[in-house]
Every structure is written in structure tokens, then in C-alpha cells.
């Protein structure tokens, strides 16, 4: 993982994704959607070379295609009739609508792939701590228990297998029963042991007062610069959104693309915003290339 965007202040990272996702959900203008898609794919590539993207993309594409294909089948809105399927009119508008929304869903899903790479659980909890300290704490504890319980489950299953209770060719009902036996052992054992955890928490002063946090991310100069870029471009996006510069009408008749100066200004701001992390990662990449070539 490259130390570019990911090392930005967690609040800024989170704000970036919040605005990006909101834009994915709210902007249906085809130029915006396509640019967002390009931006997100490049972001994914710059983050981990597209490994995470590759894992999920097949399923996501299938979902998008289903939406694209099914919308015209359900909906006959729109003025331009292209033909009939099962006596139902298929309109150009409903196809366009399906395509736009399939694209916007794909954008959301892929943006989450990048989100998961950048906003690690630690960052998420850091963000949550000031707002909901106890919730953040309980999530941390649960996170700690999950690998512990998984290991215990495996140990219990080893014992069951050796006692001859679990065999690979058993029928479904039997497997379900034995699976539950595994959970019985796990739950009674783990809840019993958690009493000790409670003692250990109290012994170290849990609950005697307000907790503080040992993690701090002060904003550095780069963070402040990015913050202002985000504020300026973000404000522009919001203002443009409120005035409807980037509205795109599908119904009743598909609108043709109109390029007004406002739309250009707005689009450029949006582009700058979307490409912030890519520029940061790219800069880092270049830096390392020059360092390496000088060595």
C-alpha cells in the first residue's frame, strides 16, 4: 500500500468518501457518472494495483447488468418507443434510465472497495470514538473476540472430528446438528471465560470515569491544504447541485447533453475533487521512482 491518500487525516478520508458516495447516489448526469467510474477505478488501481477490485468486480458487474436489463422490462415510461417485448413497449428512456442507474450502483459498490482499503477498522474506530465512545469500544472488543472465537471453533471441531462425530460424508441434518453442538461448546465456554475478562477490565480501571484516547492524528500542512481544496470544490459541487446545473432529464424524453459554462465550471470542480486521492498517490509514486532512479 502506498503512503499517499491513505496517510491523509482520517476525517478527511472519510469526508472524501462521504461526498463521493453521495455524489454517486445523487448525480445521474451521464458525463458525471462515467467520470466518477473512471476516477474510482483509477483510485483503486493506485491504492493496491487493483487486487481488491479484481476480487469483487465480477459479482458487481452482474448486479449492474441485471438492473440495466430489468428496468425497461418493468417500466414503460418514456416517449420514444423502440419496440415491443411480450406486448410491452420498450422505450429508449427506460433503457437509458436503467443504464444510468446501473452505472451509479456500480460506482457505489466500487467506491466501497476503495473505502475498505483506505478506512481501516482502526481509522473507523478513531472517527467513532469522539461521537460514540462506548460504541467504538464495544466494536473494538468484539473485533478482538472474533479471531479468538474462530480459533476456538476450530479446536472444538477438531475434537468433534476425532471423537467421530463429524465426518465429511454425513448428511445435511447431521451436519447442522453437530454444527450447533460446536456452538454450544463455544458459547458456554467463551461466556464463562469472559467473566475473567470482566475482572481484568475492572482491575485496570474500566468504568471509573471518562475514557480518553491514546491515538491522536494532528492535522499537518498537507492535510490543511487538502482540506481547503475539498472545501472549495465541495462547496461548488453543493451549490451547483442546488441550482440543478448537473440535472439530467430522462423522462419524458431523453435530454441531449447541453454544455453550459456553469456546467463546465461545476464539472471541473467535481473532477478536481474526485481526483484528489489519485493525484496524491501519483505524486508519491513519482517521488519513489525518482528516488530509485537516483540511487
Amino acid at each position: 500500500m502506498i503512503h499517499g491518500f491513505s496517510t491523509l487525516h482520517p476525517r478527511l478520508c472519510f469526508a472524501y468518501f462521504a461526498v463521493l458516495l453521495l455524489a454517486c447516489m445523487m448525480y445521474t448526469h451521464p458525463v458525471y457518472s462515467v467520470l466518477t467510474l473512471i476516477g474510482i477505478v483509477v483510485l483503486n488501481l493506485s491504492l493496491d494495483g487493483g487486487r481488491a477490485l479484481k476480487k469483487g468486480i465480477k459479482g458487481y458487474l452482474i448486479i449492474a447488468i441485471i438492473i440495466f436489463v430489468s428496468n425497461p422490462l418493468f417500466s414503460s415510461r418514456g416517449a420514444t418507443i423502440l419496440g415491443y417485448v411480450f406486448d410491452r413497449p420498450i422505450t429508449l428512456e427506460s433503457i437509458a434510465y436503467g443504464a444510468l442507474f446501473a452505472l451509479s450502483l456500480l460506482n457505489i459498490l466500487l467506491a466501497f472497495v476503495a473505502y475498505n482499503l483506505v478506512i481501516t477498522p482502526e481509522k473507523l474506530l478513531y472517527l467513532l470514538t469522539p461521537i460514540a465512545p462506548r460504541t467504538a469500544f464495544i466494536i473494538t472488543v468484539t473485533l478482538r473476540f472474533v479471531p479468538l472465537l474462530t480459533r476456538r471453533l476450530k479446536q472444538i471441531m477438531t475434537v468433534q472430528r476425532v471423537l467421530g462425530y463429524l465426518h465429511p460424508r454425513a448428511n445435511k441434518r447431521h451436519l447442522m446438528r453437530e454444527g450447533m453442538e460446536t456452538l454450544h461448546t463455544l458459547i458456554s465456554w467463551s461466556l464463562e471465560e469472559a467473566l475473567q475478562t470482566a475482572s481484568s477490565m475492572r482491575a485496570r480501571g474500566y468504568g471509573i470515569g471518562k475514557r480518553t484516547s491514546s491515538v491522536s492524528y494532528p492535522m499537518d500542512r498537507r492535510d490543511i491544504l487538502v482540506f481547503w481544496i475539498m472545501v472549495v470544490t465541495g462547496a461548488n459541487i453543493v451549490i451547483g447541485g442546488l441550482f440543478g446545473v448537473n440535472r439530467f432529464q430522462v423522462y419524458p424524453r431523453l435530454q441531449s447533453l447541453e454544455w453550459s459554462p456553469q456546467l463546465w465550471l461545476h464539472l471541473i470542480c467535481y473532477l478536481i475533487f474526485v481526483f484528489i486521492p489519485i493525484v496524491m498517490n501519483g505524486k508519491e509514486e513519482l517521488l519513489w521512482r525518482t528516488i530509485k532512479s537516483k540511487m
Binding site: R134, F137, I138, V141, T142, F145, V146, L148, L149, T150, L153, K154, M157, P168, K172, L175, M176, E178, G179, M180, T182, L183, L186, I187, S190, L191, A194, L195, T197, A198, M201, R202, Y206, G207
Partner: peptide, 29 residues
């Protein structure tokens, strides 16, 4: 809340989250 109550919720949440593990051969369970 007592430490015990917090741990109880965390532990039950974790158990619910990992409870699929023993049913790995049965994808729909």
C-alpha cells in the same frame, strides 16, 4: 453499564458473527 454487561454484548455479537464457521459445508445455513 457494568464491565460484564459490555462483555456479554460483545461476546454474543462476536459469536453471532462467527456462527457461520461450523456450517461452512452448508452454504445456505
Amino acid at each position: 453499564m457494568k464491565a460484564e454487561e459490555i462483555l456479554l454484548i460483545a461476546m454474543l455479537g462476536a459469536i453471532a458473527a462467527v456462527s457461520r464457521v461450523p456450517f461452512a459445508p452448508l452454504p445456505s445455513v
